[in-house]
Nucleic acid binder design. Structure first.
Length: 554
RNA sequence: UGACCUAUGGUGUAAUGGUAACACUCCGGUUUUUGGUACCGUCAUUCUAGGUUCGAGUCCUAGUGGGUCAACCA
């Protein structure tokens, strides 16, 4: 597809070429099971799984569950569902908590080497001794505690003899390091908490820095890919591997992907849900994977998007245009076409016989020769889109206008002969004549219609709900330049339309959640789980490009 | 008064010391029974100052801008 390599691919190829790890590539995706996956995670998933796939390697799914107070099994299931939906398969499903005993022994090893000590200081004291980015820290009075005492104390920590927060195990590195993370970081803390997997077996839990890299090493992860914010952790990551003399996994950092009009902060997302600005984590406006799924974004479109966004180390904000282009591109190839009228007005075709209907043929997807067709019924009363008719139309308006010709998609050319309107000047009904010899596919009329519009047979049309979504935020970088990001929430991000008309044959898709359609000339839509076989609810995924909208502005 | 990362069109990513390119957007056009798709075209780019070199977007130094780091979170 593209023969230029990103910087991680270059590293991997160098490693393969030099015979490192026998040319094997093993990556990992390490979510903490305390929230829902979002577009940013999708990027990390694509990078980790994608690279492994490209280099004939594999990827472990490892839940980073070292903090029992925030983690739940419910999230584990959703995370697995999201990754699978994106189309990736992990080699092994693992948990950092699987390694608690090994990690404990690693800590003992460190203590025995004089590289870790039990600190009785309070959290406040430890913070004070940390120093600041510009000032070195100071040594804890417990830093010189002897090995025997440390071993004894650490064992008693494990045995539950001490209260939460009363003691910690710290690594013995360097309190004067310019890297704050090297200033004797805490590696074990006491938490008398129930863990979602280990239950009440443990009351001490390792910190991220003493779990993540070690887990990588235990699994034999060759390339541990993470976001840039962890770059300061790398010296520590390497330090533990060196001192513990364990498998040398290598951490490589790349920049997180930001997307215009989207937020990925767990706290902010939660606020939107709790304050009911959206209808749950899978609301189609949410940047969560479950939200995008419900919105109708195809998994392949999300993967293509992440690929096209690229991998590098600088701050970036990807235009939402690119995501929507990927979605359209995918759906154009795959979505079944049908006609639906969102804002209907009736057209009466005066020279078409009443009480009969004519069966016409509609192609399911012009981009796919094998997609087939479906029959549709034409009669003397149809609905068209209100905005496809203009009383006083300019020359560049190619749709329906008095005295003008227009093609009804898959049907006939009609000529508008008049209309009626109410006291407010709103058009209530339109009149037309059709040309029997202008039928789609067998047109012998010689007539030319500049425009083609979609329609629905009014004689048997049924109502459905259509939910139209707009951006969740009014600013491409929500929260920028204002005190509270909520100031940028778009209050009109969802419009529910209950007047839409469709062919009754569509009712059979009432339980086909996620089924995708292109409503001709309107956009891509998908069946929402709120649907039933009595009443379908469609979510608008994304509109078609609309060059008429641009033309109108001129 | 620290350390680390980073700087290429509007956006993102390439160019691995040798003609700055690709995608999306924008704008214009061709085709079209979706004002969609497809196709073609236009505009537009190396933060600044020094240095090394026959030659620097690339290497070096300094500056400037942006980002990150002081949770018993991950």
């Amino acid at each position: 597809m593209n023969d230029s390599l990103n910087f991680i691919e270059q590293i991997i190829e160098e490693d393969i070429n030099s015979g490192k790890h026998d040319g094997k590539v093993l990556t990992r995706f390490p979510p903490e099971p305390n929230g829902y996956l979002h577009i940013g995670h999708a990027k990390a998933i694509c990078v980790n799984f994608g690279l492994a796939e490209k280099y004939n390697g594999a990827t472990n799914l490892r839940f980073d569950d070292t903090n029992p107070t925030t983690e739940e099994t419910e999230y584990v299931d959703n995370i697995k569902k999201d990754i699978s939906w994106l189309g990736f398969r992990w080699k092994e499903e693992l948990y950092a908590s699987d390694y608690f005993e090994t990690l404990y022994q690693y800590a003992v090893t460190l203590i025995k080497k004089g590289l870790a000590y039990v600190d009785d200081s309070t959290p406040e004291e430890i913070a004070a001794m940390k120093g600041s980015p510009t000032e070195p820290g100071t040594n804890s009075p417990y830093k010189t505690r002897n090995i025997e005492e440390n071993l004894n104390l650490f064992e008693r920590m494990r045995n539950g003899e001490f209260a939460d927060g009363s003691r910690v195990l710290r690594s013995n590195v360097d309190m004067s390091s310019p890297n704050m993370l090297m200033r004797d970081p805490i590696i074990y803390r006491i938490k008398h908490e129930h863990h979602h997997r280990t239950g009440d077996k443990w009351c001490i839990y390792p910190m991220y820095d003493f779990a993540h890299g070690q887990s990588d090493s235990i699994e034999g992860i060759t390339h541990s890919l993470c976001s840039l914010e962890f770059i300061h952790h790398r010296p520590l990551y390497d330090w533990f591997i060196e001192k513990l003399e364990i498998f040398p996994s290598k951490q490589t950092e790349f920049a997180r992907m930001n997307v215009e009009f989207m937020i990925t902060s767990k706290r902010k997302l939660l606020k939107l849900v709790q304050d009911k600005y959206v209808d749950g984590w899978d609301d189609p406006r949410m940047p969560t994977i479950s939200g995008m799924r419900r919105r109708g974004y195809p998994p392949m479109a999300i993967r293509t998007f992440c690929d096209k966004a690229g991998v590098a180390k600088r701050e970036n904000t990807i235009e939402i245009n690119l995501l929507e282009a990927c979605v359209r591109d995918e759906l154009n190839k795959t979505a079944e076409r049908t006609m639906l009228v969102i804002d209907p007005v009736k057209v009466v075709i005066k020279n078409f016989p009443d009480n009969i209907s004519e069966e016409l043929v509609m192609e399911l997807n012009p981009e796919d020769e094998n997609s087939g067709t479906r029959p549709i019924q034409f009669s003397n009363e149809i609905f068209i889109e209100k905005e496809d008719f203009m009383k006083d139309a300019p020359d560049n308006f190619f749709r329906m206008k008095p005295g003008g010709l227009v093609r009804l998609k898959h049907a006939f050319i009609i000529e508008c002969t008049g209309f009626s309107e109410n006291a407010n000047g709103e058009v209530t009904e339109i009149y037309a004549n059709y040309f029997p010899d202008s039928k789609s596919g067998q047109d012998t009329s010689g007539l030319k219609a500049k425009g083609t519009i979609h329609w629905v047979n009014a004689k048997n049309a049924v109502n459905c709900d259509v939910r139209i979504y707009d951006r969740l935020f009014t600013h491409p970088s929500p929260g920028e330049g204002v005190e509270d990001f909520m100031e940028h929430v778009n209050k009109d991000s969802m419009t529910v339309i209950a007047t839409a008309k469709m062919d009754p044959g569509m009712l059979k898709y009432g339980k086909s959640f996620g089924k995708q359609f292109q409503f001709l000339r309107l956009g891509y839509f998908t069946v929402d789980p709120d649907s039933s076989t009595e009443k379908i609810v469609f979510n608008k995924t994304v509109g078609l490009k609309d060059s008429w909208a641009k033309e109108k502005k001129k």
